[in-house]
């Protein structure tokens, strides 16, 4: 019998980084910026959180719970904000090619992460090539105290750290803002047709900057969640894997809707680990095939959406294009 009570929380925990990354990328893409640097930004978000936590753990004899959360979170937000600003400066101000910039940012972000990760590992003189920040991690992954008393319900819905709930709340708020508010309408217009938005008196560059930077910061939290909660505070280089790309696939899968992304991220998380739950025996190649599932369903969604040709389900029309008002 398939054990849904133990499977579901693991799917959620896999899904949370994707949801952060996906929500961030949706906000970014709604402004017409195709930020392929998201994997790098999430990576930087993670390592910045680690640096913050490491320095705090080293300097403080006893951990104050509030600071143990606030310092890594702020350093994570700062790091991903800087990455977002860099991306905006290159693509919006200098109008560089978005795909090239994004890919370069990913390489750059992972490089930075591995550099600082490696340096910290050197500093700790650890036997294993990783840093363990278990004290900080405990604060991050603290769940509601009465969760354990509620049986399967508690295990499935209440057993997570605060960042997991933040991811859902941020996604819901984002969905509301995009759909129902003036700012959201303007943002959609910027991504669909910047010239139209400009003619309507919207500051296109400002919207692109803010959306991309906010999106980057949200995505960075995905990296933070991964290290502090999912990986129990253990940072090792390259452990983050291809989650950043999955986050971008998630955007397509959820057809640019953050509220759909919540469910889709859990599905993705589930598909990502389903190979552990399906007895493959000695046939290791089966496992590798199962790992393809998230990408496979993304392709299927792309095919279905393209076939249905509903305008509302298509990517923002000006996605990936730089905007210059006086272009002739």
């Amino acid at each position: 019998m398939f054990d849904i009570v133990s499977f579901f929380p693991r799917a959620v925990m896999q899904g949370v980084p994707l949801l952060f990354g996906g929500t961030g990328e949706i906000i970014t893409e709604k402004s017409g910026n195709l930020n392929l640097g998201i994997p790098g930004i999430m990576y930087v978000g993670g390592i910045c959180g680690v640096i913050g936590a490491f320095l705090y753990e080293q300097s403080a004899a006893e951990l104050n719970s509030f600071l143990a959360v606030a310092i890594p979170t702020l350093s994570c937000l700062l790091g991903s904000l800087l990455m977002g600003l860099l991306y905006c400066f290159l693509t919006v101000t200098l109008r560089a090619n978005q795909n090239v910039t994004g890919l370069a940012m990913t390489t750059f972000g992972i490089g930075i992460g591995n550099f600082f990760g490696g340096s910290l590992i050197k500093l700790t003189d650890a036997e294993v090539p990783s840093i363990a920040l278990s004290a900080t991690s405990k604060v991050f992954s603290k769940s509601l105290p009465f969760a354990d008393n509620l049986g399967w319900f508690g295990k499935m819905f209440l057993s997570y750290g605060f960042l997991a709930y933040s991811a859902v709340i941020i996604a819901l708020i984002t969905a509301y803002v995009i759909k129902k508010t003036r700012v959201g309408l303007n943002l959609r217009a910027v991504g669909e047709s910047p010239a139209t938005a400009d003619a309507a008196g919207i500051n296109v560059n400002k919207y692109k900057y803010i959306a991309t930077c906010v999106g980057s910061m949200i995505a960075g939290l995905g990296g933070l969640y991964y290290v502090m909660d999912y990986a129990c505070g253990v940072w090792s280089n390259d452990a983050f894997g291809d989650r950043g790309w999955l986050a971008i696939a998630l955007v397509i899968f959820s057809i640019w809707r953050p509220n759909l992304a919540i469910i889709a991220s859990i599905l993705f998380g589930g598909l990502y680990i389903v190979y552990l739950y399906i007895p493959a025996g000695t046939q290791l190649y089966m496992m590798e095939l199962y790992k393809m599932l998230p990408y496979l369903v993304t392709i299927i969604v792309l095919v279905v959406v393209s076939m249905r040709k509903k305008r509302e389900n298509e990517p923002p029309a000006a996605l990936g294009l730089a905007y210059f008002r006086e272009e002739r």
Binding site: L185, S193, R311
Partner: peptide, 20 residues
């Protein structure tokens, strides 16, 4: 200068200031 996926109303009020 119109955004195709939006409705006429959404296009008309685009960029105007007002309540959030």
């Amino acid at each position: 200068k119109l955004v195709d996926v939006l409705t006429a109303t959404e296009n008309i009020i685009l960029g105007l200031e007002g309540k959030g």
